[in-house]
Design a protein around this nucleic acid. Sequence first.
DNA 1: TTTTCGTGCTCTGCATGCAATTAATGCTAA
DNA 2: TTAGCATTAATTGCATGCAGAGCACGAAAA
Lengths: 242, 242
Amino acid sequence: MEEVRRPRGRPRKPVLLQAEPGLARLGLHERAVQRLRGLIVGGELPAGADLVETDLSAALGISRTPLREALKLLAAEGLIELRPNRSPRVTELRSGDVAALFEAIAGIERATAELAARRMSEADLAGLRALQTEMEAHHRAGALAPYFALNHRIHGLIVAGARNAPLKDAHDALHARAELARRRALGRRSRWDESVAEHRAILEALEARDADAAGRLLLEHVTHTGAALLAGLCPPAATDAA
Amino acid sequence: MEEVRRPRGRPRKPVLLQAEPGLARLGLHERAVQRLRGLIVGGELPAGADLVETDLSAALGISRTPLREALKLLAAEGLIELRPNRSPRVTELRSGDVAALFEAIAGIERATAELAARRMSEADLAGLRALQTEMEAHHRAGALAPYFALNHRIHGLIVAGARNAPLKDAHDALHARAELARRRALGRRSRWDESVAEHRAILEALEARDADAAGRLLLEHVTHTGAALLAGLCPPAATDAA
DNA sequence: TTTTCGTGCTCTGCATGCAATTAATGCTAA
DNA sequence: TTAGCATTAATTGCATGCAGAGCACGAAAA
C-alpha cells in the first residue's frame, strides 16, 4: 500500500509533468490551468478521474496554493467538478450534456459567423480560403488527422473574425469541453464528405458577405456535427459514461 | 499616512463587509465571489478601483487564500482584471466593450429563445405571461424600478426555458458585466415604450411556438437595448471611462 | 528646474502548517 | 454472517510566513 494509493475512485494516473520549455513567464496557476486543460482534453486524465491536490501538486512541481486556484478555474470552465471536502473529479459527460453543448456552440458560432461576414478583412477571407483548399486536398488524399486540425483552425478563424472577445471566450470554453466528447466519438469518418461541403458553402457565404446565410449554414453545420457525434457516442454507451 | 493609504490608483473605499446571514454553508471563496460580484455590479466597488488583497481580506473577514481564489474567478468572468505583481482592478468598460457585450448577449439570447419556444412548458409560458401583464401594469403606472426588476426576471425565464446549462452560464456571466454598463446609462426611460412592446411580441412568438420569430425578435430587442444604452453612455464620456 | 539614480516600503506570489471533515477499516454484538 | 459503531488514515479548506517584484519618494547631478 505504499507505491500507489487508490483510496476511492478509479486508478490514479502517475501524471509526471512540469518541465515547461521557454514558453512564457506566466504565473504558476496559469501554467497549471493550461497544462491540466491539455491533459484533460487530451485524455491523459480520463473522465471521472479523481484529482488529489497533493498528488497533482507534486506531479506538477508546484505547491497546493496555485494548484487550487487552477482547479477553481477549470471548474468554472466545466472541465472538472468540485465537491465540498472531496477530491475534484474530471467531468463525466452525459449524452444530454453533449447535446446541450453543441446547441450552445452552434448558437454562438452562428452569431460569430454573422458578425464575421461583415467584419472579416479580405486577408482574413484569403486565409480562410487557403485553409479550405488545403482541407479539400487532405480530403481527397484521405488524410483524416490533418483534416481535424484544419477544421479546428477554420472554426477558430471564423470566431476570431467576429472581432468579439466575449463570444470568443465563451466559444473557447465550450469548445474545450466539446473536445472531451469528440475524442470518444466513433464513426467520425461518416460525415466527412458532408462536412467538407458544408465548410465550402460557409466560406462562400462569408465571401459574399451574406451574414444570414453564413450564420444559418454554420449553425446547421455545427448542429449536424453534434448530432453525428452523439450518434457515434450513444450506441456503445447507453446514456452516460463509456 | 496611517488611516487611509492610497499609494496609487484612485481613492480606496473602506468596504466593511461580512456578516453573512444564514444563507448557505458554502466555501469562503464562493461566498467571497458572490459578495464581490454584488459589490462590483452594485457600484460599491467602482470601475478602476484597486483591489488590494490585504485590505479586502480584512474587510471580508477571511484570509488571503480564499480571497485570491475568488479574485481569479471574477477575473475569468471579466469583472476584474489581473495584472502580474499588481493589484487587480475593477474592469473599466470601454464603449467598444459594451457594444461587443450586447452583441454576444443578443446572439446567446436568440439561441435560448429558439430553444425555449420548443421547450418551455405551458406553466412556464403562463408564468411569463403573468410577468408581462405585471410589467405592463407598472408601465402604465409609470413605475420604472419594478419594470427593471421584471425585465430581468423575464429574460432570465426565457434563458432558463431553453433548458441549456452552458448557454445559461454564458449568459449569466455576460449579463453581470452588462449590468456594469447599465447602471451608468442615461436616458433609459426613452426606450421604455418600445421595450414593453417588444417584450409582448416576444411572448406571443413563444406562445405560438415560433422559434425563428422568437429568436429574431429577442435578438433585435437586445440589440436595440444595447444601442440605446450605448447612446446614453457615449455623449458624456468620449470613448472610455465616465 | 529637470532628470536620473538610489533607497525603502508595500504588495503580490508561492509555500507550508494546522484544524475540520470524510471515507475506509476493523471490531463488537446480535 | 451481518449490521452497527468506533477508530484511524487521508484529504480538503483555510490561515500564515517568507521571498521577490514593483512603485513612490527623495537625493544628487546636469
